[in-house]
Amino acid sequence: MMDLTQKQWVKHTVFHPFEGFEDLRWKKGGSVLFASIVIVLWFIGAILYENFYGQQFIMSSTKMFNIVPFIVQTIVLFLTWVVGNWSICTLLEGEGTMKKIYIYSAYALIPYVVQLYIQVIMSHFMTRDEAIFITTVEVIGVIWSVVLMFMAIKAVHQYSVSKTILAIILTIVAMLLILVLLVLLVALFQQVYVFATSVYTEISYRMKV
């Protein structure tokens, strides 16, 4: 039963929110490649969403395009989620490995990512009066993804509902901690770098004299 190809697994998990991930876990399906494709598509979709949205809906357009915020808001955010969730759930007797969390979370994001593209396309055909259709698509995509994400975490760690909620809240806290530490680390390394370069310039000046 359920000998699906990797492509079919993607479809199965997205369209069977309540048992899809359990099946996926049972049959040990899911591929890192497809998960990574989803994340890359999310990254591209986020850029399209910000920069190629229909002119009639744009409230404030970007003056200068900068790719770094998009990397942080999609790829870095997702990796932080995976690492945060793994570190919390290892302590909370979760069964998921880092690889599984990565795959399952990425699959859960598919409706949200697809919704981004549909929004961008629709925004070029609709006027402001019809914005309600675009909003509907957005709301459906987001809710769908939230449900999937919940079920994914539940399935990957074999948690009960209440424990999943707890795990997700703790994961968000862990993500914040990780980001704070990251910022701190970057700042510290910057200091070290500045110190090293100033020592180097100092020495190079002395050498010349």
Partner: peptide, 22 residues
């Protein structure tokens, strides 16, 4: 109208022009 609304970055104006264009 759409071209100039886009240059002006005026989405409200663009919306009007786009409605007519469509």
């Amino acid at each position: 109208a759409m071209k100039y609304a886009e240059l002006a970055e005026s989405s409200l104006q663009y919306n009007k022009a786009f409605e007519g264009y469509r």
